[in-house]
């Protein structure tokens, strides 16, 4: 009896020193910058103007919400996130079913489909901007010209649409990869039974495959949202938030306030808004993951 409790009690305490370093560094990584952002957001603090100091109360937040650029950036962020979500999750679901079906060379086709996910954001953005969407030398322009249409100057005429296309291309593979895993875990017999009961492909998709994928789709939406809320590099190297503020998202606005205008206080207030937005999504995501951890 005592022999069996001995190793157990030893084992319980013994793991802690191994866990502590990771917990400690993550705690610092989370608490310190978060506290600083919150603190700065209540301060008059501009790196270019050392005379500007002191407690600002909620002034930074007041300036933020009365700044039309802030609301534009929120709308732009929303447009970008929702458009990319609709495209990637919609197409991703269909493609997951497509690549779950056997056909010759399917494994190679799958590799080609997920390839964009491994392309660094600065490369995807510049490749699309120049090789594809450039009004004169880009392939799109050349094709339009060949059919007698005026080429579209994407980044001047439809800057947000151009960004949405690029980001969707980058994230569609992620959706396909995750959703494909979910489809593959579906019991083949269930589909077979439905087929024998006379369910056509569409009925099978709606009544069997979609419900089975619901969880995975939720997870994809939440993870993508968290990443899409802070899309930065693609905008940085293509439009720099312009023309005007047409592609200025919240993330880009904060960057511009902080590192181009050196307005630490104002940028921090924006940072707090970004953190709050991300956390709303994160709460749901963590809850969904926690449910799976039980098993």
């Amino acid at each position: 009896m005592s022999a069996s409790t001995m190793p157990a009690s030893r084992s319980r305490g013994a793991g802690l020193p191994f866990l502590a370093p990771s917990v400690l560094v993550l705690l610092l990584w989370m608490i310190v910058p978060l506290a600083m952002t919150l603190w700065f957001s209540t301060q008059r603090y501009n790196l270019l103007d050392p005379t500007q100091t002191g407690f600002a109360g909620i002034d930074n937040y007041y300036y933020l919400v009365t700044d039309p650029d802030f609301w534009t950036s929120l709308v732009n962020t929303l447009v970008l996130v929702v458009s990319v979500l609709v495209i990637t999750v919609g197409l991703g679901t269909l493609l997951a079913v497509l690549y779950d079906t056997a056909f010759p060379g399917r494994n190679i086709a799958r590799l080609l489909v997920i390839a964009p996910f491994f392309v660094m954001p600065t490369v995807s953005a510049l490749m699309w901007k120049n090789l594809m969407m450039h009004p004169i030398y880009g392939l799109f322009g050349v094709v339009a010209h060949a059919f007698g249409f005026a080429p579209i100057d994407w980044f001047a005429q439809y800057p947000m649409a151009a960004i949405v296309i690029i980001v969707s291309w980058e994230w569609l593979p992620f959706a396909v990869l995750i959703l494909l895993t979910a489809v593959q875990s579906l019991d083949g017999e269930q589909k077979e039974a439905a087929r024998l009961d006379g369910a056509g492909p569409i009925a099978q998709f709606v009544y069997i495959i979609l419900p089975h994928m619901r969880r995975a789709i939720t997870v994809v939406i939440m993870i993508e949202t968290i990443f899409l809320l802070t899309i930065f590099a693609e905008i940085f190297v293509t439009t720099s938030g312009g023309p005007g503020t047409a592609t200025t998202t919240l993330a880009y606005l904060i960057y511009a306030r902080a590192l181009l205008q050196y307005d630490v206080g104002g940028a921090s207030a924006g940072g707090v808004v970004a953190i709050v937005l991300a956390n709303i999504v994160a709460i749901f995501l963590v809850r969904s993951i926690a449910r799976n951890l039980e098993a």
Binding site: A14, P33, I254, I275
Partner: peptide, 30 residues
């Protein structure tokens, strides 16, 4: 291998640090 009552909470908390948007902490880190 040495799970305690807090293991599950610790795992989820670690995960939640990943959800802090980088742009929110850009200024202090910079």
């Amino acid at each position: 291998f040495h799970p305690t009552r807090r293991t599950r909470g610790t795992l989820l908390w670690m995960l939640s640090t990943k959800m802090l948007p980088p742009v929110g902490v850009l200024i202090p880190i910079y």
